[in-house]
Design a protein around this nucleic acid. Structure first.
Lengths: 344, 344
DNA sequence: TAATTTTATGAAAACGTTTTCATTTTATGT
DNA sequence: ACATAAAATGAAAACGTTTTCATAAAATTA
């Protein structure tokens, strides 16, 4: 067991006693309440520092029903885009005096549900979520929403109009830009490997792809459009299919960078020259894309901007509530940009 | 403001009322206390589920002085090694019913101090820390340690014997293995770019390097040993210095992968063939090392094992306290392995 | 059946804040 | 100096649990 040396944490009462004041005054002084004398305030602050006092957040939270804590659910923090977003969010929230509880769903719906429950029980003041790819039902967030807790979805957001705030990258434009770029550099036979269409991410990126093709009067060969989990292995299999046919594509747009990297590997292994025989463009600007040879073109999503916007909107809602009329509840869209590199 | 529809969270009292029992019994039932009838327990559980009851962690924590929350301070979650460790920790803690508050110090000592304070105020049940590189003073953790809160340092740990638990990779062995590997593949003029010696990481890796050199009776040229912040830019500068001299190295051991990648880039830009003219080995097995051409040799640190060990030790200490005698308080050391690739 | 032990429940205090309401102190105007 | 307004403080309740101590109910023993 812990040694006998468990020094009591000093409480507000200890300060009160030391200064011959009531706990009420101490509390007010610490919260900078207007009805307390400047002299008293400074006395209290001084004594608090001297005693090493730190507010007990549980007592405070219990009474005031505020935890000053924001919950975040993300598929995996090791994904570059999310790591960047989280870092931005955390640093910004910190400035506003909020803590962040980061949870990983491992892209499992059941985990996401459980975490929503746990964070609800923890009485977070607000919630930030990047959904799992499989999620089509979002009722596990009802508790939060109904309790008036701001819920902000980013990146991967519900498709049906779930009553919350959405912040997303311009995936349609990303898909469009990527495809236009391939076309403009002379490609005509463009393949596309995308994720399952349950997610807004891939619906939009694919829609952008199709729009660009249509605009340039290029046919979309459906057997060259893949919707599958975007893993390294699946990508290689798709490549094998594409390049075992009589007619092969001269360009490839993949809806994430892992797939682009895998495709490039396949190309190297099979003597397909990139970009001469096959141009490739990925999505997300993962650090690996700039390091691989040839460097991969991709779409930049500005994770820092996404994070910044999330906190901006969140703080506003925490202060003022969600004052937007139902009509105005459109997603906030963060612009994307094309990054041209050697692969296209 | 929030709409009028703020449905009260159901409390233990609501369950009590619904079942005509006292709140005390409900509490006991929910905590699976032995002195409550099985029938009552199941009744309570059923009613709790029906009312969507969720324990108020603040009330619970206030009373029982347990938060079921563990704090973690890490320089940056976007570093691959740390991201992996954190993921493992979080998943493991989750199984034990603990939450994790992840904080980033951005490798700033002042931030680390502030975070230690905040987490102390949050009354975390335990604390996991990977220090900033600059930290030489650790008194900001005193509050925690003195309050009997388990503090576990990992990866970057205090140098002076601060009274806490240490879990670290075998950095000495890593440095030794890397250097031996370079020697065994025929190198004789080996340079070494390392971090500042304030950190145990670089002290140990460099010591391993020197040991290997000594054992193989190779001289260490001090002008070829760098101790600097391990950034991309610094690495390029060091390379410029190394390769502007009359005698140039035929191998390089860098204490992290970012530096190895930068060195490889420099080599490519300057017509230095890798591995023919220069062999390179990095440290950490960052995903980028396997993707770059030529793929970089490096040292694997097994982040998942580190995370697992942390939780194992932590849970034990939470249950039983730190029962190790002062004498036994050695760091737990996680083994490392050499990853051979094309660069060496 | 009565006495005793065991098992199950309840009453009430406690955790450390915040906040309402009442009260005291200080400042202001005549 | 006195009445009044304003400013500063205090007393006590409240937040939702857990837990100690007491008591009631059930099971066991004599």
């Amino acid at each position: 067991m812990n040694k006998d040396k468990k020094p009591q944490q000093n409480t507000i009462l200890d300060i009160a006693e030391a200064l011959k004041l009531s706990p009420a005054t101490i509390s007010r002084a610490l919260n900078n309440h207007p009805h307390v004398k400047e002299k008293t305030k400074s006395d209290v602050l001084k004594m608090a520092a001297q005693l090493g006092y730190r507010r007990n957040q549980m007592a405070s939270g219990l009474r005031s029903n505020k935890t000053h804590t924001v919950g975040l659910i993300v598929p995996r923090i090791s994904m570059f885009f999310h790591a960047e977003v989280i870092t931005t969010i955390q640093n910004a929230l910190h400035k506003h005096g909020y803590n962040l509880i980061i949870c990983q769903s491992n892209d499992l719906l059941s985990m996401e549900e459980e975490l929503a429950d746990i964070l609800y029980a923890s009485r977070v003041d607000a919630m930030i979520v990047a959904c799992t790819l499989q999620a089509t039902d979002f009722t596990h967030f009802d508790k939060l929403v109904n309790s008036g807790i701001p819920v902000i979805f980013y990146d991967r957001v519900p498709l049906n109009s779930y009553p919350a705030t959405y912040i997303k990258g311009d995936d349609f434009r990303g898909g469009y830009l990527a495809t236009c770029h391939l076309i403009e550099t002379g490609s005509e036979r463009i393949a596309h490997i995308s994720g399952k269409l349950m997610s807004n991410l891939y619906q939009d990126r694919t829609a952008g792809f199709r729009k660009a093709m249509e605009q340039h009067q290029l046919p979309v060969r459906e057997e060259w459009v893949f919707h599958q989990e975007l893993t390294h292995e699946n990508a290689k299999e798709a490549m094998a299919k594409l390049f075992s046919a009589a007619v092969v594509p001269d360009a490839l747009f993949t809806a994430n960078d892992v797939t682009a990297i895998a495709a490039l590997e396949y190309a190297k292994e099979n003597g397909i020259r990139v970009p001469q025989d096959l141009k490739i463009i990925g999505y997300s600007n993962d650090p690996r894309t700039s390091i691989i040879t040839p460097a991969l073109s991709t779409i930049e999503q500005y994770p820092a901007k996404v994070g910044q916007k999330i906190v901006e909107v969140l703080i506003d809602q925490l202060k003022n509530g969600d004052q937007r009329l139902e009509l105005e509840k459109k997603p906030y869209v963060i612009p994307v940009d094309l990054i041209r590199r050697m692969s296209s």
